[in-house]
Amino acid sequence: MTQEQTIQATLHILNKSPSHPRFATCLAALHEGDTLALAENAVLAVTDSTAGLPRNCVALGADLEARGLAGNPNVQIISYGDLVRLTAEHSRTVSW
């Protein structure tokens, strides 16, 4: 991978449900241009009207499907492979 392809922003991988204290901490730590990837219980945020998700937000399809939320279109749905690619593209990763 060349330097040009690396995005100088942070990828935040969040797997805590919206009622977990770390969910709010993570959202408060987001900077402009950062990407938020929702995994495991964090995907419940797509159906939580109080979640306040950022524009750059993606969610793992398998976790949405598992919870009956795959029909929800308000975030971009990604695969495990996409998540690996995002991790490689970003210069920094935080696993919350």
């Binding site: 770390r22 730590a29 210069s91 920094r92 990763t93 935080v94 696993s95 919350w96």
Partner: peptide
């Protein structure tokens, strides 16, 4: 500040 500490590292795991 926690944010400053996080900025010092490229790989962070909770």
């Amino acid at each position: 500040s926690v944010r400053d500490a996080l900025d010092r590292f490229e790989r962070i795991v909770f």
